[in-house]
Design a protein around this nucleic acid. Structure first.
Lengths: 198, 198
DNA sequence: GTTTTCATATTGCCAGTGTAAATATTGTGG
DNA sequence: CCACAATATTTACACTGGCAATATGAAAAC
């Protein structure tokens, strides 16, 4: 263990991201300040400025890491699913499972108040997350006659649905979340969609 | 015109809400500070404290007004729509039209960072907005056999879909919004849903 | 009509925030 | 060994929202 406290941290960049993620889990977005993150990483509050330009830059990097984990959540159940609809369902469940497990990070990721969506790294990470949705959406027999770009529209629909469900449930707007009440999951609602190769 | 500047404002409560809404339109969420709102209303930055307890209280009141306008947007095209599916489509379009016309207010309304969802007035206003969705969802022939509470699940699906589409498009995540590109509207994507009495 | 009362608005202050510039410390290539 | 670049710290600053004490004016009580 290099617990030696040297003037130079060594790998402060990733240490700050990890510190931010930890604070996000414990205290949510309210606790995510520049000074708090820096203190958790054991440095002064101006140290992050060398690696990320500003607080927003640091939060953007945290958001990018969030998108990678988000994609991982969606891919988690994919190996067990064989048919197209099952793969679709697994990805959707992963989408929501992530927002329930890491609500603060989820909000951060999709807020242009915290994240700079012009950032290249963030865009790449977000694209990786979106790619999972496009993967599970291909091969499904949507109503091609309706429009020439039916595939694209289907992706928009799935993304909208998953994101809306995740957002609303993470905000507790579907009811008292902590209760043992049987709130329908996204899979309960998903079959209302129309796809044909089931 | 009572342009006389008296020590007592008279109707500061609603003046502050209007000032906040105006700032929200012009500068977005970043410009929405306690001092900025108070200055626009022509009072000191501690005046709002008498009517709303804190900045959060004021923002919550602004959010409540947002929900009322949101409901009005959804009801806008309802009178011209006769059939069930047409009414559903009109409400969904209103949902998205609001988020496009007032993106900052839309974000404020659905963020528990700014709004206190325990507030009675906000809850009532939000319920009024949700009521429109339940109205247009009733009478549609969902797959009742799938579950006993098919109606509730259908509402969750519609709400999730509309909210997700509105959120993602308002955040510009569906593509470069300013371009003249033909980005599908929510009505383009909506027919992918399955309802039966068309 | 005067006085009391009370809601409302102001001033001055406070701790806390992110940012910036100047300084100190360390590793690295000449 | 030395100059240089990278990295972290210190100090200071403008700004934020919240609070306490004070000032104002309108409406109620006498």
């Amino acid at each position: 263990m290099s617990k030696e406290k040297s003037y130079h941290h060594g790998d402060l960049k990733s240490a700050l991201i990890e510190a931010g993620l930890a604070i996000l889990e414990r205290d949510g977005l309210k606790g995510l300040g520049l000074r708090a993150i820096a203190a958790k990483a054991g440095v002064s509050h101006t140290a992050p400025r060398n690696h990320f330009g500003s607080l927003r830059g640091l939060l953007t990097a945290i958001g990018a890491e969030g998108y990678r984990r988000h994609a991982a959540f969606m891919r988690e159940g994919l190996s067990d699913a064989s048919t197209g609809p099952d793969r679709l369902q697994a990805a959707m469940e992963g989408y929501v499972r992530f927002s329930a497990a890491h609500p603060a990070l989820f909000k951060l990721m999709f807020s242009d108040y915290y994240c700079d969506f012009e950032d290249a790294e963030l865009q790449e990470a977000a694209a990786g997350s979106y790619a999972v949705l496009t993967e599970v959406a291909t091969g499904l027999d949507w109503d091609k006659a309706a429009a020439p770009d039916a595939q694209h529209r289907a992706e928009m629909m799935l993304w909208s649905f998953a994101h809306g469900f995740a957002t609303l449930s993470a905000s507790g707007q579907f009811g008292p979340g902590a209760e043992g009440a049987n709130i329908p999951t996204i899979s309960d609602v998903l079959p209302t969609f129309r796809y044909r190769d089931r």
